[in-house]
């Protein structure tokens, strides 16, 4: 009736994979971006779990930094999606194919 660290790591793996599949499958840029957020959070969970495993707070500090970077990334990413939408009138990533060979 105890929860070993590996449960949390497996949870993190599952969430990361769901995020990855979301990025690969979806076409809407916003949903793809949300899937990337899910991946970042899954990695945060792994960091905190390892922090508990090793009895060391460095993992939590790293998770905190990763949250800061994610916040900055969301701001810039959403601005890029908005300006892309202004140009193409669509949030579909397949429409942004100017560099297609």
């Amino acid at each position: 009736m105890r929860t070993p660290i590996s449960y949390f790591l497996l949870m993190s793996v599952l969430l990361f994979t769901i995020g990855t599949v979301g990025v690969l499958v979806r076409k809407n840029a916003l949903v793809i971006f949300m899937s990337v957020e899910l991946q970042l959070n899954a990695v945060n969970l792994a960091l905190v779990a390892f922090s508990r495993q090793h009895g060391n707070l460095t993992g939590q500090v790293l998770a905190f930094f990763s949250m800061v970077v994610a916040a900055a990334e969301v701001v810039v990413g959403l601005a890029i999606i908005v300006s892309l939408y202004r140009k193409r009138r669509s949030a579909n990533v397949d429409d942004a194919s100017l560099l297609r060979g």
Binding site: R2, T3, P4, I5, L9, V13, R52
Partner: peptide, 19 residues
């Protein structure tokens, strides 16, 4: 990655370490 977790940490039955 589950295999990597098994090799690195192991699916042991110990509880959470004391924090």
């Amino acid at each position: 990655v589950a295999l990597a977790v098994r090799v690195g940490v192991g699916f042991g039955h110990g509880g959470l370490p004391d924090f």
